[in-house]
Simulated scan of single mutants.
Amino acid sequence: MTFTRTVKEEILRVQTNDKNELAAIIKMSGSLSLTDHSLNLSITTENAKIARYIYALIESIYHTVPEVSYHQKPNLRKNRIYTVLLAQHVAELLSDLKLADSFFGLATGIEPHILDDDEAGRFYLRGVFLAAGTIRDPESGKYQLEIFSVYQDHAEDLANLLHKFMLDAKVINRKNGAVTYLQKAEDIMDFLILIGAMQAKEVFEEAKIMRETRNDLNRANNAETANIAKTVAASMKTISNILKIKETIGFEALPAELRQVAQIRLDHPDYSLQEIADKLETPLSKSGVNHRLRKINKLAAEL
């Protein structure tokens, strides 16, 4: 099951009977037709549970029983398309939901009262997400929530509604419409809270934390590996210089304090500066050890 479907099925478990939610679903997935001088409203979805939910909303709010049918998509996936059809009192329903438009059949923007009322806005967001929302699986590491709108003005209004809830929504044009989207993980989690998908929010947050923890560990491991490689390279360079000194002027030519550090480096190529310091007869700091090794390297360079 996709993460999008998981979110939708969670919020479907709560029947709201809210007109703003129904208005959003009709706005996103509804179409009008005229048959035998009768105005029909069709609402389509690929999710059987959403179809049943729409059916229950209409029946509960308007005490009208719609019809539900389905047909198979003519492609390899063979998904079913469910249609909730209302053939009675359509004009009254559209008028009550403030969706009627004398020219286009359905108004294209979002009603001002939804933009002004936080509670109405939350229910509207539930509806638009049920009808046309998708969320990328947080396990993928790329966070994205999208809501597709046929009309540009609706996508812009939707972004403004999300801005009201302090979410950084943006709009991008697509071939057949426009997409309102969120890309920040924190915004997506806040959106899930707004529409009542608390369990999905917890799953999303856990996936985000686990991924960030893995990334932090990888960065730490990479840094440690780089430091080890750097230490090994420096050690090999110093050993090479010590051997050069032994072959030219002789080991005994080194001052006693340099000779002792050089011998420990030869005997223990993998030692860190601190480990060399701990091995000395006379206590010395890491910087002191480093200073003596640099003297040895400088002396070798002058030979």
Rank of each mutant, 00 (worst) to 15 (best):
T2G: 09
T2N: 11
R5K: 15
V7I: 15
V7D: 03
E10M: 03
E10H: 03
I11P: 02
I11Y: 01
I11A: 08
L12F: 00
R13G: 11
V14L: 12
N17H: 08
L22K: 04
I25A: 08
I26S: 05
K27D: 00
S29Y: 02
G30Y: 01
S31H: 05
S31Y: 10
L34N: 05
T35R: 11
H37R: 12
N40Y: 10
S42I: 03
S42G: 04
T44Y: 02
T44C: 06
T45L: 01
N47D: 11
I50P: 03
A51R: 00
A51G: 09
A51T: 07
R52I: 04
Y53L: 04
Y55D: 12
L57I: 02
S60W: 00
Y62E: 04
H63S: 11
T64V: 13
V68R: 07
H71A: 07
P74N: 15
K78P: 01
N79L: 13
Y82G: 00
Y82W: 11
Y82C: 03
T83S: 12
T83D: 11
T83P: 00
Q88I: 08
V90W: 07
E92V: 06
L93H: 07
D96T: 06
D101W: 05
D101F: 05
F103G: 13
A107V: 12
I110Y: 05
I114P: 03
I114L: 05
L115Q: 12
D117W: 01
R122C: 10
Y124R: 03
Y124T: 02
G127F: 01
V128E: 03
L130Q: 08
A131S: 13
A131I: 02
I135Q: 02
Y143A: 06
Q144M: 13
I147E: 03
I147M: 06
F148H: 14
V150I: 10
V150K: 08
Y151I: 00
Y151G: 00
Y151K: 06
H154V: 00
A155M: 06
A155W: 07
A155Y: 03
D157R: 01
L161A: 00
L162Y: 05
K164W: 05
K170H: 14
I172C: 07
R174K: 14
R174G: 15
G177D: 06
G177L: 09
V179N: 10
T180R: 06
Y181D: 02
L182W: 04
Q183T: 15
Q183K: 15
K184V: 07
A185E: 08
M189I: 10
F191K: 03
L194T: 00
Q199H: 06
K201P: 02
E202D: 15
E205W: 09
R214E: 13
R214T: 10
R219C: 00
N221G: 10
A223Q: 15
E224K: 15
A229D: 14
T231R: 12
A233T: 10
A234W: 09
M236D: 13
I239V: 09
I242M: 04
K244D: 07
E247T: 07
T248W: 13
T248D: 15
G250H: 03
F251P: 04
F251Q: 05
E252Y: 03
L254H: 11
A256V: 14
L258P: 09
R259G: 15
R259M: 15
V261W: 04
Q263G: 08
I264G: 01
D267I: 00
H268T: 05
H268C: 06
L273P: 08
I276Y: 06
D278R: 06
D278I: 00
E281Q: 11
T282Q: 12
L284H: 09
G288H: 06
I296R: 08
N297S: 13
A301V: 01
